[in-house]
């Protein structure tokens, strides 16, 4: 009972730690997504890193604030948008007369430039967007389940 009260009031140390780490986590995840094609990294990994900011928010402020700050329906819509963007970018190959998913528009800049890899870069962005919103929805669902369990225990007591 004591521990639950401590979690509900949110310890100042935990809150300040979450505040401190949150921007760095988001920026690092976005960096991994954006530079996926020129360095070790990629869409999936960066998306999960950005989604981990959700956990930091929950640790610092609890389920009420998190569910108000992040709309689950908006996240789902954006996940669908990411999937559509991936399929459209992959279909660029068909419009250019080569096979599906084949890389096109890659004749700009030197090797190692950010957009030198053509559609691969933008497909990586699309997958990163899709994964970060999708994992965010999953985490919000799990937080909702945990909050429901807490309420049940309180009612029982």
């Amino acid at each position: 009972m004591k521990l639950k009260e401590g979690i509900k009031e949110k310890n100042t140390v935990v809150k300040c730690g979450a505040d401190l780490i949150l921007p760095f986590a988001i920026v690092f995840g976005l960096c991994v997504i954006i530079f996926g094609t020129v360095s070790p990294g990629g869409g999936f990994q960066g998306g999960v890193l950005v989604a981990s900011a959700c956990i930091l928010l929950w640790l610092g402020y609890g389920y009420g604030v998190t569910s108000k700050a992040l709309s689950m329906e908006l996240l789902e819509t954006n996940e669908a948008l990411g999937a559509i963007a991936y399929v459209l970018l992959a279909a660029c190959g068909l419009f250019m007369g080569v096979r599906f998913c084949q890389n096109v528009f890659f004749d700009n800049g030197n090797v190692g430039d950010l957009i030198s890899a053509g559609t691969i870069t933008f497909m990586s962005f699309a997958v990163g967007y899709k994964v970060l919103t999708g994992i965010g929805v999953l985490l919000l669902l799990m937080f909702g389940m945990l909050a429901g369990e807490d309420d049940e225990e309180e009612e029982a007591e």
């Binding site: 094609t37 360095s39 990294g41 990629g42 890659f106 053509g118 691969i120």
Partner: peptide, 11 residues
């Protein structure tokens, strides 16, 4: 033209 071979294979 992708510097990362793994990204080229995946995407």
């Amino acid at each position: 033209m992708a510097a990362n071979n793994v990204a080229a294979v995946v995407f």
